[in-house]
């Protein structure tokens, strides 16, 4: 569905020092420099896949997404989405994709969302029966009924995002580009959005590409992740593989029936946190079996769980390694 070969995207930006002198100098001489937002990225994504783009701010995630959506022309390289060159912006291409940006909206601000729905029906030339079926389905899934008649400006952020998702999917796109779709939403609304995106992906075999700073989004939605840092693709694979590569250690969560001394815990591994009822211990992959066996035989346990390190920590370590290199 998506083929990217040696994609490069550079921006030409004007550089100016602060201050009046520099402002006057820039009247006569405007120095420019090329910012390499994306530098030689290649990958392919199959139909129906859900892929997460991860990376720190300014890594090149959103730029890549915008190139794939046809908003930006690649500086070099070849990009094809559904057999189309995105930058040509063919009508058949645009009717197959959608882009949802958590910080931008396409809903008409002073009109109810139903007006934007009607406008998009006309713009995408959606057959009336299909439109009504889709609206009914989206209304039920996202509980939109009480929202469709209110002016957009009177909706809460979460309500607006649900309507944004609905309006972006009215034409049943085959490729969804989601750029920070849950930004600013509360935990319950984030979960609603995730569940909905997953349901849409499964129902229509749609390809989903997601960028998010909420690792929960990526962990819940994306079996495959791509990590972009400083414009380069530094990892492309399954999320557990990324975790194993960056942080091969495990976390053992012990729930205790009574408090224990710290000296009883030290032989198990590195103590991350400890209170009377709960202890978290970091254990190397190789020492895991022995530590678990020892904990089961020596401690007053109510429960024991083995987990991967939190994804946030994995990413922090990954980018710290990148910076150190």
């Amino acid at each position: 569905m998506i083929e990217v070969e040696h994609l490069r995207k550079w921006y030409r930006v004007h550089r100016r020092e602060p201050g009046l002198k520099a402002a006057l100098r820039s009247l006569l001489h405007r120095p420019y420099e090329d910012v390499k937002a994306v530098e030689d990225i290649s990958f392919s994504i199959g139909a129906g896949e859900r892929v997460g783009f991860l990376g720190p701010n300014g890594a090149g995630k959103t730029t890549t997404l915008k190139v794939l959506a046809g908003l930006l022309h690649p500086t070099e390289g070849r990009v094809a989405v559904g057999g189309f060159l995105p930058q040509e912006r063919a009508r058949e291409f645009l009717t197959q994709i959608t882009l949802v940006m958590g910080q931008k909206q396409q809903l008409l601000w002073d009109l109810p969302p139903s007006e934007t729905f009607a406008l998009n029906r006309a713009i995408y030339d959606i057959p009336r029966a299909q439109y009504e079926e889709t609206v009914a389905e989206l209304t039920a899934l996202l509980e939109l009924a009480p929202l469709l008649g209110k002016p957009t400006r009177q909706l809460s952020l979460g309500e607006r995002m649900k309507c944004e998702l609905a309006v972006a999917l009215l034409h049943r796109p085959k490729v969804l580009f989601l750029d920070e779709p849950t930004i600013g939403l509360d935990v319950s609304m984030q979960a609603t959005v995730r569940t909905f995106v997953r349901a849409y992906n499964e129902r229509f075999s749609a390809t989903v590409i997601l960028t998010s700073h909420y690792m929960e989004d990526v962990a819940a939605l994306c079996p495959r992740v791509m990590v972009i840092d400083k414009g380069r693709l530094i990892f492309d694979g399954a999320l557990p593989d990324l975790i194993r590569r960056v942080r091969p250690d495990k976390r053992v969560l012990l729930r205790l029936s009574k408090p224990v001394e710290q000296r009883d815990l030290l032989p198990l591994g590195t103590i991350i946190s400890q209170n009377d009822a709960e202890v978290i211990i970091q254990v190397s992959q190789e020492g895991l079996q022995a530590s678990v066996a020892r904990a089961l035989s020596t401690l007053p346990l109510r429960d024991l769980t083995v987990e991967d390190p939190p994804l946030e920590e994995v990413m922090r370590d990954l980018f710290a390694q990148g910076n150190a290199a």
Binding site: L71, R91, L94, I97, L99, Q103, I123
Partner: peptide
């Protein structure tokens, strides 16, 4: 403001609207 990007993704030139 960046909202133009979303208009540009519709299959009809935003100038019509």
């Amino acid at each position: 403001q960046g909202t133009f990007a979303l208009q540009l993704l519709r299959p009809i030139n935003p100038l019509w609207q």
